[in-house]
Protein backbone atom coordinates (compact mmCIF):
# COMPACT_ATOMS: atom_id res chain seq x y z
CA UNK A 1 0.00 0.00 0.00
CA UNK A 2 2.62 2.48 1.15
CA UNK A 3 4.89 1.06 -1.50
CA UNK A 4 2.38 1.67 -4.27
CA UNK A 5 1.85 5.19 -3.04
CA UNK A 6 5.61 5.76 -3.05
CA UNK A 7 5.78 4.51 -6.62
CA UNK A 8 3.04 6.88 -7.63
CA UNK A 9 4.83 9.75 -5.95
CA UNK A 10 8.10 8.93 -7.70
CA UNK A 11 6.31 8.73 -11.06
CA UNK A 12 4.67 12.11 -10.43
CA UNK A 13 8.01 13.69 -9.49
CA UNK A 14 9.61 12.19 -12.60
CA UNK A 15 6.93 13.62 -14.87
CA UNK A 16 7.26 17.06 -13.30
CA UNK A 17 11.06 16.86 -13.57
CA UNK A 18 10.81 15.96 -17.25
CA UNK A 19 8.35 18.75 -18.04
CA UNK A 20 10.04 21.35 -15.86
CA UNK A 21 12.32 22.93 -18.50
CA UNK A 22 9.32 23.43 -20.76
CA UNK A 23 7.33 25.17 -18.05
CA UNK A 24 9.95 27.29 -16.34
CA UNK A 25 11.43 30.56 -17.41
CA UNK A 26 14.94 30.27 -18.85
CA UNK A 27 16.45 31.78 -15.71
CA UNK A 28 14.96 29.10 -13.48
CA UNK A 29 16.06 26.34 -15.83
CA UNK A 30 19.53 27.80 -15.42
CA UNK A 31 19.16 27.59 -11.64
CA UNK A 32 18.08 23.97 -11.99
CA UNK A 33 21.20 23.21 -14.02
CA UNK A 34 23.30 24.57 -11.18
CA UNK A 35 21.33 22.49 -8.71
CA UNK A 36 22.38 19.42 -10.71
CA UNK A 37 26.01 20.52 -10.94
CA UNK A 38 26.25 21.30 -7.23
CA UNK A 39 24.43 18.07 -6.50
CA UNK A 40 27.09 15.98 -8.23
CA UNK A 41 29.86 17.66 -6.25
CA UNK A 42 27.78 17.55 -3.06
CA UNK A 43 27.14 13.84 -3.50
CA UNK A 44 30.86 13.20 -3.02
CA UNK A 45 30.83 15.22 0.19
CA UNK A 46 27.69 13.35 1.25
CA UNK A 47 29.43 9.99 0.91
CA UNK A 48 32.28 11.19 3.12
CA UNK A 49 30.01 12.78 5.71
CA UNK A 50 27.10 10.38 5.80
CA UNK A 51 28.94 7.10 5.46
CA UNK A 52 32.40 7.80 6.90
CA UNK A 53 31.65 10.70 9.26
CA UNK A 54 34.28 12.86 7.56
CA UNK A 55 33.62 16.60 7.17
CA UNK A 56 35.19 17.74 3.91
CA UNK A 57 35.73 21.47 3.48
CA UNK A 58 37.91 21.16 0.40
CA UNK A 59 35.57 20.00 -2.35
CA UNK A 60 35.82 23.29 -4.25
CA UNK A 61 39.48 22.43 -4.87
CA UNK A 62 38.56 19.35 -6.90
CA UNK A 63 35.67 21.21 -8.52
CA UNK A 64 38.30 23.74 -9.61
CA UNK A 65 40.70 21.10 -10.90
CA UNK A 66 37.94 19.68 -13.09
CA UNK A 67 36.89 23.09 -14.36
CA UNK A 68 40.43 24.28 -15.13
CA UNK A 69 41.41 20.99 -16.75
CA UNK A 70 38.47 21.32 -19.11
CA UNK A 71 39.13 25.00 -19.73
CA UNK A 72 42.87 24.62 -20.25
CA UNK A 73 42.78 21.52 -22.42
CA UNK A 74 39.91 22.77 -24.58
CA UNK A 75 40.79 26.44 -24.93
CA UNK A 76 44.57 26.64 -24.58
CA UNK A 77 45.49 23.28 -26.10
CA UNK A 78 42.45 22.93 -28.37
CA UNK A 79 41.69 19.34 -27.39
CA UNK A 80 38.29 17.68 -27.42
CA UNK A 81 36.18 18.17 -24.24
CA UNK A 82 36.35 14.50 -23.30
CA UNK A 83 40.08 14.88 -22.66
CA UNK A 84 39.46 17.75 -20.27
CA UNK A 85 36.87 15.76 -18.33
CA UNK A 86 38.99 12.62 -18.14
CA UNK A 87 42.26 14.39 -17.36
CA UNK A 88 40.52 16.46 -14.69
CA UNK A 89 39.04 13.37 -13.07
CA UNK A 90 42.32 11.46 -13.23
CA UNK A 91 44.30 14.40 -11.87
CA UNK A 92 41.79 14.90 -9.05
CA UNK A 93 41.92 11.21 -8.20
CA UNK A 94 45.71 11.30 -8.10
CA UNK A 95 45.87 14.45 -5.99
CA UNK A 96 43.15 13.16 -3.67
CA UNK A 97 45.13 9.98 -3.20
CA UNK A 98 48.41 11.81 -2.51
CA UNK A 99 46.74 14.18 -0.04
CA UNK A 100 44.25 11.71 1.35
CA UNK A 101 46.67 8.94 2.23
CA UNK A 102 48.48 11.02 4.89
CA UNK A 103 45.63 13.21 6.13
CA UNK A 104 43.04 10.46 6.48
CA UNK A 105 45.00 9.19 9.46
CA UNK A 106 43.57 12.26 11.21
CA UNK A 107 40.04 12.22 12.58
CA UNK A 108 37.27 14.60 13.58
CA UNK A 109 38.07 18.28 13.87
CA UNK A 110 41.65 17.79 12.79
CA UNK A 111 40.76 16.10 9.54
CA UNK A 112 38.06 18.65 8.79
CA UNK A 113 40.42 21.56 9.32
CA UNK A 114 43.06 19.82 7.21
CA UNK A 115 40.57 19.62 4.33
CA UNK A 116 39.72 23.28 4.91
CA UNK A 117 43.42 24.15 4.70
CA UNK A 118 43.70 22.16 1.46
CA UNK A 119 40.70 24.00 0.05
CA UNK A 120 42.36 27.31 0.91
CA UNK A 121 45.71 26.26 -0.54
CA UNK A 122 43.88 25.24 -3.71
CA UNK A 123 42.13 28.59 -3.92
CA UNK A 124 45.42 30.44 -3.56
CA UNK A 125 47.14 28.28 -6.18
CA UNK A 126 44.32 28.90 -8.68
CA UNK A 127 44.87 32.60 -8.09
CA UNK A 128 48.68 32.59 -8.17
CA UNK A 129 49.13 30.27 -11.16
CA UNK A 130 47.52 32.68 -13.57
CA UNK A 131 49.58 31.32 -16.48
CA UNK A 132 47.42 28.21 -16.14
CA UNK A 133 44.13 29.51 -14.81
CA UNK A 134 43.98 33.06 -16.05
CA UNK A 135 43.77 34.25 -12.40
CA UNK A 136 40.98 36.73 -11.76
CA UNK A 137 40.53 37.27 -15.50
CA UNK A 138 39.74 33.60 -15.91
CA UNK A 139 39.49 31.57 -19.09
CA UNK A 140 36.67 32.28 -21.52
CA UNK A 141 35.48 30.71 -24.75
CA UNK A 142 35.14 27.19 -23.42
CA UNK A 143 33.12 25.21 -26.01
CA UNK A 144 29.73 23.79 -25.10
CA UNK A 145 29.41 20.02 -25.10
CA UNK A 146 27.78 17.96 -27.76
CA UNK A 147 26.51 14.44 -27.40
CA UNK A 148 26.55 12.33 -30.58
CA UNK A 149 26.34 15.49 -32.63
CA UNK A 150 23.58 16.96 -30.49
CA UNK A 151 24.63 20.38 -29.21
CA UNK A 152 24.02 20.88 -25.48
CA UNK A 153 23.93 24.62 -25.95
CA UNK A 154 20.75 25.68 -24.18
CA UNK A 155 19.89 25.50 -20.46
CA UNK A 156 17.00 23.14 -21.32
CA UNK A 157 19.24 20.63 -23.02
CA UNK A 158 21.91 20.90 -20.40
CA UNK A 159 19.30 20.41 -17.67
CA UNK A 160 18.45 16.94 -18.96
CA UNK A 161 22.10 16.09 -19.47
CA UNK A 162 23.31 17.18 -16.00
CA UNK A 163 20.39 15.69 -14.12
CA UNK A 164 20.79 12.40 -15.94
CA UNK A 165 24.42 12.29 -14.81
CA UNK A 166 23.44 13.34 -11.28
CA UNK A 167 20.82 10.59 -11.04
CA UNK A 168 23.19 7.95 -12.38
CA UNK A 169 25.79 9.08 -9.84
CA UNK A 170 23.21 8.79 -7.07
CA UNK A 171 22.23 5.34 -8.25
CA UNK A 172 25.87 4.24 -8.21
CA UNK A 173 26.30 5.71 -4.74
CA UNK A 174 23.16 3.97 -3.60
CA UNK A 175 24.62 0.65 -4.74
CA UNK A 176 27.82 1.47 -2.95
CA UNK A 177 26.29 2.34 0.41
CA UNK A 178 23.96 -0.63 0.45
CA UNK A 179 26.71 -3.04 -0.59
CA UNK A 180 29.70 -4.55 1.15
CA UNK A 181 31.80 -1.37 1.10
CA UNK A 182 28.89 0.70 2.42
CA UNK A 183 28.33 -1.65 5.35
CA UNK A 184 32.03 -1.44 6.17
CA UNK A 185 31.98 2.36 5.93
CA UNK A 186 29.05 2.70 8.30
CA UNK A 187 30.57 0.12 10.61
CA UNK A 188 33.80 2.07 10.91
CA UNK A 189 31.88 5.27 11.52
CA UNK A 190 29.80 3.68 14.31
CA UNK A 191 32.45 1.65 16.14
CA UNK A 192 35.96 1.86 14.68
CA UNK A 193 37.58 -0.74 16.98
CA UNK A 194 34.93 -3.34 16.18
CA UNK A 195 35.19 -2.66 12.45
CA UNK A 196 38.95 -3.02 12.65
CA UNK A 197 38.58 -6.28 14.56
CA UNK A 198 36.41 -7.55 11.70
CA UNK A 199 39.28 -6.90 9.25
CA UNK A 200 37.97 -3.65 7.75
CA UNK A 201 40.98 -1.78 6.36
CA UNK A 202 39.69 1.58 7.48
CA UNK A 203 42.45 3.73 6.11
CA UNK A 204 42.31 2.22 2.63
CA UNK A 205 38.52 2.45 2.56
CA UNK A 206 38.50 6.09 3.63
CA UNK A 207 41.11 6.88 1.00
CA UNK A 208 39.01 5.22 -1.72
CA UNK A 209 35.93 7.23 -0.76
CA UNK A 210 38.00 10.42 -0.58
CA UNK A 211 39.23 9.74 -4.13
CA UNK A 212 35.69 9.01 -5.28
CA UNK A 213 34.51 12.26 -3.72
CA UNK A 214 37.25 14.15 -5.56
CA UNK A 215 36.32 12.54 -8.89
CA UNK A 216 32.68 13.59 -8.44
CA UNK A 217 33.84 17.12 -7.60
CA UNK A 218 36.04 17.23 -10.66
CA UNK A 219 33.31 15.93 -12.93
CA UNK A 220 30.93 18.60 -11.64
CA UNK A 221 33.64 21.21 -12.24
CA UNK A 222 34.21 20.09 -15.84
CA UNK A 223 30.48 20.12 -16.53
CA UNK A 224 30.26 23.58 -14.98
CA UNK A 225 33.05 24.88 -17.22
CA UNK A 226 31.35 23.62 -20.38
CA UNK A 227 28.04 25.09 -19.29
CA UNK A 228 29.22 28.51 -18.16
CA UNK A 229 31.86 28.58 -20.98
CA UNK A 230 33.91 30.78 -18.66
CA UNK A 231 35.76 30.00 -15.41
CA UNK A 232 37.58 32.20 -12.91
CA UNK A 233 38.89 31.93 -9.35
CA UNK A 234 35.69 33.28 -7.78
CA UNK A 235 33.98 29.94 -8.40
CA UNK A 236 36.42 27.85 -6.37
CA UNK A 237 36.62 29.52 -2.98
CA UNK A 238 36.11 28.05 0.46
CA UNK A 239 32.56 29.47 0.40
CA UNK A 240 31.83 27.12 -2.48
CA UNK A 241 33.17 24.21 -0.45
CA UNK A 242 30.84 25.18 2.36
CA UNK A 243 27.92 25.21 -0.06
CA UNK A 244 28.84 21.69 -1.21
CA UNK A 245 29.01 20.60 2.41
CA UNK A 246 25.61 22.17 3.04
CA UNK A 247 23.98 19.82 0.54
CA UNK A 248 24.29 16.68 2.70
CA UNK A 249 23.88 18.65 5.93
CA UNK A 250 20.60 20.20 4.85
CA UNK A 251 19.25 17.01 3.41
CA UNK A 252 20.45 14.63 6.10
CA UNK A 253 23.74 13.00 5.25
CA UNK A 254 22.71 9.39 5.70
CA UNK A 255 20.58 9.28 2.56
CA UNK A 256 22.19 9.58 -0.87
CA UNK A 257 18.80 10.36 -2.45
CA UNK A 258 18.51 13.25 0.00
CA UNK A 259 21.27 15.05 -1.88
CA UNK A 260 18.60 15.94 -4.45
CA UNK A 261 16.77 17.94 -1.80
CA UNK A 262 20.01 19.46 -0.57
CA UNK A 263 21.06 20.42 -4.08
CA UNK A 264 17.69 22.04 -4.82
CA UNK A 265 17.94 23.94 -1.54
CA UNK A 266 21.40 25.40 -2.12
CA UNK A 267 20.54 26.39 -5.67
CA UNK A 268 17.03 27.73 -5.08
CA UNK A 269 17.30 29.35 -1.64
CA UNK A 270 19.67 32.13 -2.78
CA UNK A 271 17.35 32.78 -5.74
CA UNK A 272 14.29 33.07 -3.55
CA UNK A 273 16.18 35.22 -1.07
CA UNK A 274 17.99 37.36 -3.63
CA UNK A 275 15.35 40.06 -3.37
CA UNK A 276 16.90 40.81 0.00
CA UNK A 277 20.24 41.77 -1.51
CA UNK A 278 23.36 40.89 0.45
CA UNK A 279 21.22 39.87 3.43
CA UNK A 280 20.33 36.64 1.67
CA UNK A 281 23.74 35.23 2.51
CA UNK A 282 23.12 35.85 6.20
CA UNK A 283 19.85 33.96 6.00
CA UNK A 284 21.59 31.20 4.09
CA UNK A 285 24.18 30.86 6.85
CA UNK A 286 21.47 30.96 9.50
CA UNK A 287 19.63 28.19 7.69
CA UNK A 288 22.72 26.02 7.98
CA UNK A 289 23.15 26.85 11.66
CA UNK A 290 19.50 26.19 12.43
CA UNK A 291 19.47 22.88 10.59
CA UNK A 292 22.57 21.73 12.48
CA UNK A 293 21.11 22.88 15.80
CA UNK A 294 17.52 21.73 15.39
CA UNK A 295 17.47 18.97 12.78
CA UNK A 296 20.29 16.52 13.44
CA UNK A 297 19.10 14.35 10.57
CA UNK A 298 18.46 17.18 8.15
CA UNK A 299 15.23 17.90 6.32
CA UNK A 300 14.86 14.21 5.53
CA UNK A 301 14.60 13.56 9.26
CA UNK A 302 12.00 16.29 9.78
CA UNK A 303 8.85 14.13 9.45
CA UNK A 304 10.22 11.67 12.00
CA UNK A 305 11.04 14.50 14.40
CA UNK A 306 7.58 16.02 14.03
CA UNK A 307 5.97 12.61 14.57
CA UNK A 308 8.03 12.07 17.69
CA UNK A 309 7.09 15.42 19.13
CA UNK A 310 3.42 15.71 18.24
CA UNK A 311 2.16 12.47 16.86
CA UNK A 312 1.57 8.91 17.99
Amino acid sequence: MAFARNKLLIAAVAVVALLLPLLLQRHYVDVMVFAGLYGIAGLGVALLLGQCGIVSLGQAFFYGIGAYSSAYLCVTLGLSPIFGIVVGAALSALIAFIIGWPILRLTGFFLALATLAIGMIGGILFYEWDWLTGGTLGIGGIPTLSLFGFELNTPQRYYYFVWAIFLVAIWLSHNLVTGRAGLAMRAMRDAPPAAEALAVDMHALKTKIFVLCAVLGSLAGSLFAHYATYVSVQSFTVERSIIFLLIPVIAGAASVWGTIIGALFVALAPELLSGLGDAHQVLFGLALVLVVTLLPEGIVGLPKLVMKRFGA
Binding site: L172, N175, L176, G179, A181, G182, L205
Partner: peptide
Protein backbone atom coordinates in the same frame (compact mmCIF):
# COMPACT_ATOMS: atom_id res chain seq x y z
CA UNK B 1 33.86 -11.51 1.15
CA UNK B 2 35.75 -9.53 -1.43
CA UNK B 3 33.57 -7.21 -3.57
CA UNK B 4 35.47 -3.96 -4.13
CA UNK B 5 34.21 -0.40 -4.27
CA UNK B 6 33.83 -0.30 -8.06
CA UNK B 7 32.19 -3.72 -8.36
CA UNK B 8 29.68 -2.69 -5.70
CA UNK B 9 28.98 0.68 -7.31
CA UNK B 10 28.30 -0.76 -10.72
CA UNK B 11 26.26 -3.59 -9.18
Amino acid sequence: TSSGVLATMFA
